[in-house]
């Protein structure tokens, strides 16, 4: 699996992490191209279904990233997201999805560097983990 490139689907909140990713880009920071962003207004609107679906479609990891606690543009959306991620982290490993395949981070709008670092750190870990088993299953 040397040429295996993991796919990360990142649900990023419009106000913080999406902006941070933008900043990482405009700051010309380089980070692995393995991530695809899906912008949401707030991590609080990330339905657990999205994460499940992404993994079932073959994504190797799902990153949910929003504003730091206390900085949520909508006051407490990230607190709700945290509970939902907690649930997913209990649920998905039961079916062999490694715990690392769902990740929650708080990356503020100005943390372009942290965004780049987060992705840079995730990719080798996912490579070590190997591809999502779903890729070989005829299942959705």
């Amino acid at each position: 699996m040397e040429d295996y490139e993991p796919t990360i689907i990142a649900f990023t909140c419009n106000w913080c992490t999406y902006t941070a990713a933008d900043l990482a880009g405009t700051s010309r920071l380089s980070y692995p191209p393995n991530v695809r962003l899906i912008r949401v207004m707030c991590t609080g609107m990330v339905d657990p279904k999205y994460v499940i679906k992404a993994l079932l479609e073959g994504a190797d990891a799902v990153l949910i990233s929003g504003c730091h606690i206390g900085d949520c543009h909508y006051m407490n959306g990230n607190l709700k997201a945290r509970r939902r991620v907690k649930l997913l982290k209990e649920l998905l490993p039961r079916f062999g999805f490694d715990e690392q395949r769902v990740k929650l981070t708080w990356i503020g709008a100005s943390d372009g560097i942290q965004f780049a670092e987060t992705i840079t750190e995730m990719v080798p870990k996912l490579k070590a983990l190997g591809p999502n088993e779903v890729r070989n299953q005829m299942v959705l």
């Binding site: 657990p48 499940i52 997913l88 649920l91 998905l92 079916f95 890729r135 005829m138 299942v139 959705l140």
Partner: peptide, 28 residues
């Protein structure tokens, strides 16, 4: 397109997805 990704996909789709989602919704 789903079928093309793997060459084969079980029909109906969304069965495993349904059960995991239902677990997410009401297992607690």
């Amino acid at each position: 397109r789903w079928a093309k990704r793997k060459g084969i996909i079980k029909m109906p789709t969304d069965t495993v997805f349904f059960h995991i989602t239902r677990l997410a919704h009401m297992s607690t």
